[in-house]
């Protein structure tokens, strides 16, 4: 069994339902995302179009994150999922440097690397990933790539020539496919990501990796301190460069 994912960008309407479902299902903290939907405006007014691209871990067959992880915290499951063992992660961020898709984040609550696992816990129970279940237009297609009769295999065969992966030149053999995508939607170098407030939100970069309130000395003292559970309020006012910019 080799599980894979396909997103038909012709169907996706950018409702972000999958993003929310993922957050809720996996209790992803504020400021972190396992799955996100990026809006990209293409062309010059009045000839413009808007594209929606859901981005998540590609569960590569030759995963650079798995290769660089010094303690096998990132490992393959038998069904092809690249899973994370948070209890083993040392927080070196090597996987964040290796993943060409920027799919891994440092969880600000646990200070360990985390990412989309195709909802491995749900798969184990015979359920579909939360983002697949929530999608109102069935743009997310999930299944066994080894099974020729699975929905995803048939979808790939029916759309031969139009199925793409992100950054194929990296030779990571991603198991996440797109239909209806193009260079401008799948290649970040073909997009301008202008920092600051724009039509929808303040596009910026995170200043911190992991817990925004953690000091270097705090990392060493953490095991000896009383457990103080972080809550979401800690992340609401995280300090960003453009935070004070007007809207």
């Amino acid at each position: 069994m080799k599980l894979g994912f396909l997103v038909d960008l012709n169907l996706c309407m950018g409702c972000k339902g999958c993003e929310v479902a993922c957050k809720v299902e996996n209790e992803v903290p504020l400021g972190s995302w396992r799955l996100r939907v990026k809006y990209i405006d293409i062309g010059t007014f009045p000839e413009t179009s808007r594209s929606f691209t859901p981005l998540r871990c590609n569960h590569c067959e030759s995963a650079p994150c798995e290769r660089i992880c010094p303690v096998s915290a990132l490992h393959y499951l038998e069904n092809g999922i690249v899973n994370v063992d948070s209890s083993r992660c040392i927080g070196c961020a090597g996987c964040m440097m290796a993943c060409p898709y920027g799919a891994i984040y440092m969880d600000p609550e646990t200070n360990t690397a985390d990412k989309c696992t195709y909802c491995a816990h749900r798969i184990e129970s015979g359920m579909m990933p939360a983002c697949v279940v929530i999608c109102p237009v069935q743009a997310n297609i999930f299944g066994d790539l080894d099974d020729d009769n699975s929905h995803i295999s048939r979808y790939i065969m029916e759309h031969q020539g139009a199925v793409q992966v992100r950054k194929p030149e990296k030779n990571t053999t991603p198991k996440h496919f797109y239909v209806g995508g193009g260079n401008q939607t799948l290649n970040p170098l073909a997009q301008q990501r202008l920092e600051g407030y724009n039509l929808f939100n303040n596009i910026t970069h995170l200043k911190q990796i992991g817990d925004p309130h953690e000091s270097v000395i705090g990392r060493f003292l953490e095991p000896f301190e009383s457990e103080e559970k972080l809550d979401n309020r800690s992340f609401i006012d995280f300090d960003n460069d453009n935070y004070k910019g007007g809207h």
């Binding site: 400021g31 995302w33 996100r36 990026k38 809006y39 990209i40 405006d41 293409i42 808007r50 594209s51 961020a93 964040m96 440097m97 920027g102 984040y105 440092m106 401008q184 939607t185 073909a190 997009q191 301008q192 990501r193 202008l194 724009n198 039509l199 929808f200 939100n201 596009i203 910026t204 970069h205 995170l206 200043k207 990796i209 960003n240």
Partner: peptide, 14 residues
């Protein structure tokens, strides 16, 4: 070219 008009905050220097 294309312009990103809605996205999350991405990590800076890791």
């Amino acid at each position: 070219q294309a312009v990103v008009t809605l996205d999350v905050a991405l990590p800076g220097i890791i």
